[in-house]
């Protein structure tokens, strides 16, 4: 089974660890993450990701900067916001982002504040 590789950026360290644990408990997903923007960019350069999830505490300025960097390096990468902080919406957000990639259907989960 081909895994979806996910980078998680989230300022809240405990929530970050929870999200990574939830993601890596699912055999379809493989995730690493950080609370630091520079480290996130470094990770993005070092690994290949299908999806980037931006979690709690990321300012609009950081988000815009990260989106530009990630999509410039890999125009196919999906950059989405993760809401809720836990398991409730995680699977849904990934499903929606990946199906959007295939069908062109778009749900407002992706970056709904814009």
């Amino acid at each position: 089974m081909q895994k979806t590789h996910i980078l998680v950026v989230c300022r809240h360290e405990e929530i970050l660890q929870t999200i990574l644990r939830l993601l890596n408990n699912n055999e379809r997903w493989s995730a690493i993450g950080t609370s630091d923007d520079e480290k996130a960019v470094e990770m993005f350069h070092q690994h290949s990701f299908d999806l980037v999830m931006l979690g709690s505490g990321i300012s609009d300025e950081s988000e815009n900067k990260l989106r530009k960097i990630f999509t410039h390096q890999n125009p196919l990468v999906k950059v989405i916001q993760h809401f809720g902080g836990g398991s409730g919406l995680l699977s849904n957000e990934i499903e929606a982002a990946l199906s959007n990639n295939e069908s062109g259907n778009f749900n407002v989960i992706d970056n709904h504040f814009k």
Binding site: T18, G57, G85, G86
Partner: peptide
């Protein structure tokens, strides 16, 4: 009865 949602996180909701 007596069961529930253990400690878990939320953000931006």
């Amino acid at each position: 009865a007596g069961r529930g949602f253990g400690k878990h996180p939320h953000d931006n909701m």
